[in-house]
Every structure is written in C-alpha cells, then in structure tokens.
Design a protein around this nucleic acid. Structure first.
Lengths: 342, 342
DNA sequence: TTGTATGCGTTATCAT
DNA sequence: ATGATAACGCATACAA
C-alpha cells in the first residue's frame, strides 16, 4: 500500500504546548517567539524554544491563529475564467505578491454569471479572506453584489464596477477610441464593432469611445455596425458571421477582446476576405495569441500582470488604496492585421 | 462583560449563540441544524432555527468549524506556472469540481523551483488543506519533497513523480514515440529533439520514447540531436538557434511542449527554412496556440481539463484513488507543420 | 522577563 | 429531542 497508510498510529502534529513543556517555558513564551514579539525575550530563551520546536517539527496552526486574530493571510481572487489570458496573467501577478508575503490565494471562476459571483463572494466571506480581488468588469444589474454586506471587507476591483471600492482601471473609452482612430488612419470607413454583452459595464464604457471616435473621424455612423456578443472565439465567429449574413458592409473591425477578434479572423478567412486589405482588424488585451496568429493581430496592450500585483499590494497594505481609482496606461501594438502596404 | 453580548456599535457577524438565544434553543441545536444532523430534530424546530438565522444573517464560521473538525474544505493546487496553457486548463478543471462541492482552491506557482515547491507544500500543510494536487512532473533530486512528512495528507500528482501517491499520468514514452514515428512517416530522418531540462522526470521518460522510435524506424541516431532546455518559447528559440549554430543538421523537430515548438518555429522563420518541407515539427500539449499559429502546429493533445477534474474528484473522495496510476490517453492532432504536400 | 487564565465559534460527548 | 460543557490551538490582558 501507500506510505501514508502505513503510519496510521496517532502521530498528530505537535503543538505549542508540547514545545513549551519540552523547552521548560509556557505556551505564551512559545507564542511570543513565533509571533516575532521577540523584543522582550532574551536571545537564549528564543534559541531554546526554536531548537525544541525544530526537534518536534512544530508548526503553528494557522486555523487557531486565524480564529483568534480574525485574519487568515488569504486573498480571494474572483475571475470570470482562469483560462482567459487576460485573467491568468492577473492571477500570476496576485499570487507572486501573495507568495512573497506568505499569503495564500484562493480563486474562483464565475463565467460572469451572477449566481456564481454571489456564491463566490459568500464563500470567500465565510472563509474569512483578508481581502477580495474582483477581476473583470461588472454588469448593469449588480444587485446580487450591492445587496451584500461588505463592511469590514477590503475589496479591490479590476475593471469597471459600480461597487464603492478601490478600483484598478484603464480609460476604456480612450482605449477603444484609440483603436478606432487607428483603423480610420489606415483608411477604414465602416468599422464593425464587436462589443461584449450589452449589460457589461466595460461594453458601455468602451462604446462611448467607439462612438466618439466615429464622430470625430467622421466615419459611417451606422447602429447596425455594433454587434453585441461574448468574449470567446466562438462568439466572435458567430457575431461576424451574423453581420455578413445580414449584408452589413464593413472594412474594419474593432473587437473589445482578442478572442473575439480571432473568431472574426477565422470567419473572414473562410469568406476569403483579405486581412488587412479588405478588412483591417484590431483586438484588445494583447494576449500571447495576437503575436502568433496569421496574420498577426494589432491589439491594445494592458499591463495585466501589474494589475494583479497592484491589487494584491493594495490588499496587503503595501500600496495605498485611495478613494480614486488607480489608472493604468495602455498601448496600441500595431501588427499585420492593420498594416496595409502601399 | 464580553463584547460578545453587548451590541457594540460595530455590527459584527452574528454567531450560533445569537441564533440560539433568539430561537429559544441551545447552540447545540443550531449546530445540529446547520450540520444537517437533522434526523433527530423536529421539523418545526428546524424551521424556527433557520428562520431566525436568516433574520440575523447568520453564517457558520468556517475557521471555528475547521479548527474543531480538522477539515478546511480546501484543496491546494501547486503548478509551475498558472500562465501556461497546460496548467490553467488543469486549474479550471480542479476549480469547477471544487466549486460545485462547496470547496475552495488555493493555488501557488513554483516555476519548478525546489525552494518554491517546498515552501508551497509547507504553507499548504500549515493551512491544513484537505488535499494537495501537485501538477507538473517532478525532478530527479526531489529530496526537498521526500523529506517531508506526508502522513495524513491526501496528495494527487499529475505527471511523473517519485512520490508514493496517487498519480494521474499519460504514457510519456508512447506519446513521444508516436510523435517521432509521425515525423518519420512524413519523411524525416534526422529529428531534433527539444527536451526539457535533463533532471526533469518527464524529460527522462519521454526521451526513452524518442530513442525507441529512432531505433524502431531506423533513423539517424545522433546524440547531438538531443537538446535540453526549458518549456518556454524563449528556451525553444535559444536551443534551436544553438543547434543551427553548431551546424547540426535536421529535417524534423519533436518538441516536448508547444511553447518550445513555437520558439523553434520562430527561429526557422528567421532562418528562412520552410515548414514543413524543409523541417517538419510537432509539439506537445495542443495549447490553443497550436491551431492558430502559422503554419498551424501538429501537436499531441492531452485532456488537461479532465486531469484537473479527476484529481479534484480524487481529493474529494468522489473517485477512487487507487494505488495504480490513473492513465489518460493522448491524441496526435495533425496540422500544417507536418503536412507535406506532394 | 515570564506565566495564568480566558476567549475565538464551532462540534462532540455525555447527560437528561 | 435537547442541553451543558469540554475541547480544537492559539493570542492576549493581566498578574507576578
């Protein structure tokens, strides 16, 4: 059988009391040594405690400590989908900071479903996390979150939300305005907009930028050019196909996310429409895919990893979390999908 | 008196005692109702308790319960890097199962560094996780893990390890043998092998398959064709570049990971060597990139998401974890990088 | 400088 | 069918 089945005899972990007895001190002293309240304890007492603790392989019980202190050294991370490049980079940033600080990260996927969001928040509260990082923009109807009793919980949102918490943001309107202007600059007049779902806040904010740019650049302002959908490749395909089927004409595409852009590229390829000459296209997030797909995809880059780091630092109190949002910048990375030769 | 009984201005969470008093029962009864030990409790008592609990917004304290029962409803997930497609798919599988069961997943990135691996394991033990899922193969010198006192901890490994625990595996030798034979079938004679680091167990197992296939297919058996490196795109580039600089000739590449394969493709492009006509190439993991890069990359597909689900189910006891490893199958997905026309 | 006693909120044991 | 009470392992106020 397996090694762990063999030693069934009751070898429980040793506890502070054991160390105390063997070292000839009280549990209080052990506690003090392990809590770093070492300023009042003589060096040799410390050493004796640590030595016997090592012998007994003593490790303080986090649960007991947490129950007593009301702090779990745990950060809760809520993402729509850890498989999405935008979010796994955030996750990596959060965990790097947490690990360095001796904290632990619990994460959960919501698929942007209100039921799951609510369930995750409840679970994280029940588990007494020290802070929650809510990644991914919110939705219009966010009563499932607004009804929650948030007091006492430190929350950081990444992306637009209507919750009264510290936020990490980019200027979503400006982002899409920049992308749209870029398409205009390479000669596009009718720009198909692959937006997210209509009730997503990020969709609403970005649409403002799209419309603004359309007006500024005096491009065709046709409501039919705005297509609502999800942030998956499949959704991008579906929506692009629908636009074509409806006979909507377009010579450029701005997608609010790279996966949707890639779906669109797939359909254009099937339809034998040349990129970028017949249709130029720009995505968002600058996922690793953007630089590898053919043709390579122009995209807006955000520092997702830094979002994650910053959020974790705010939770840990290593960085001030002010009332005003922490704004990050963006960068348009031009690639083949918008580079028209001659 | 105890701040507990006084309603200090701060709205603390309500606890079992509050519910008990208001419902006119004892905490024991409240506990029983919330623990589902409802068979001895009359329906109307149950209802009364649940009703007052709802009024007080009572939620049982996980920490106290965990301290008492020694179970945290938490799964620890250890991955080399959550940003790697192989691992974020596993992570998604683990979390889906966990979330459904009301469990929580804590994760940590190790970058395959022994120090980090050890630190994570220690931290997870300290946090009293109910089980650890160790994803990503182990290394030769794994004393940092073998020295650990594992008794009482349920551990599932995904990928080759030398730890005495339930394992989820594919036949690594067969995988690479299949890839190598595929290259042979399209006409390759000198196959460059982009292996991982020499001390990785997965590297060793897969090299057996490579050598076997080389022998079986009577291909050039040149030790110089075996290049050791990491599983990143950068490493793939570096190693391929080195092979070319050393004047090593090859007409095929088998990479033990897609990222390395993509790095190789990058270098081949710079060197103007046509894929697949001059060099055919096959990767491993069938990451989303494989189907999108140009030319599309032949790769071996594993059911990573199912690895994650299965591992979580084993930890939760929903699936038997036998002494013998749980073997999963693989599938070679042929794409342009090995499809020679004519 | 060190120790004693109590509480954190729950579950389990033993009564009734 | 229900309750009183003792753990779970630690941190802290208060003593000494």
């Amino acid at each position: 059988m397996k090694a762990r089945d063999v030693v069934t005899r009751g070898r429980r972990d040793s506890i502070a009391k054991d160390v105390a007895r063997l070292a000839g001190v009280s549990v209080t002293t052990v506690s003090r040594v392990f809590s770093g309240k070492t300023d009042v304890i003589p060096k040799n007492t410390q050493d004796r405690v640590m030595a016997t603790a090592a012998v007994l392989r003593y490790r303080p019980n986090f649960l007991a400590k947490a129950l007593r202190q009301g702090k779990t050294q745990t950060i809760g991370l809520i993402v729509p989908d850890i498989s999405d490049a935008y979010f796994y980079q955030i996750a990596r940033g959060v965990e790097d900071v947490a690990q360095t600080a001796g904290y632990t990260v619990i994460f959960a996927n919501t698929d942007r479903l209100p039921e799951k969001e609510q369930a995750c928040v409840n679970l994280f509260f029940d588990k007494k996390v020290d802070g929650i990082i809510f990644a991914g923009g919110g939705v219009n109807d966010d009563n499932h979150l607004n009804d929650h009793a948030w007091e006492g919980m430190r929350v950081i949102t990444i992306g637009p939300h209507r919750l009264p918490f510290s936020a990490i943001l980019v200027d979503d309107g400006a982002v899409i305005a920049a992308a749209t202007h870029h398409l205009a600059a390479v000669g596009c007049r009718r720009i198909l907009c692959l937006a997210g779902k209509p009730n997503w806040l990020v969709t609403q904010r970005r649409l403002v930028g799209y419309r603004q740019a359309i007006a500024d650049a005096e491009l065709d302002d046709d409501p039919a050019l705005i297509m609502f959908g999800g942030f998956s490749q499949g959704s991008g395909e579906e929506v692009t196909r629908a636009a074509i089927d409806r006979g909507i004409e377009f010579d450029g595409i701005v997608a609010f996310n790279d996966y949707a852009a890639i779906g669109a590229m797939q359909v254009l390829r099937e339809e034998k429409r040349r990129i970028p000459d017949e249709v130029a296209i720009v995505g968002c997030d600058d996922t690793p895919l953007a630089a590898l797909i053919h043709p390579t995809l122009t995209s807006i880059r955000f520092p997702q990893y830094e979002f994650g780091r910053a959020a974790a630092e705010m939770v840990l109190g290593q960085r001030p979390d002010n009332a005003e949002p922490l704004m990050f910048s963006y960068e348009l990375i031009q690639r083949e999908s918008t580079t028209r030769l001659g």
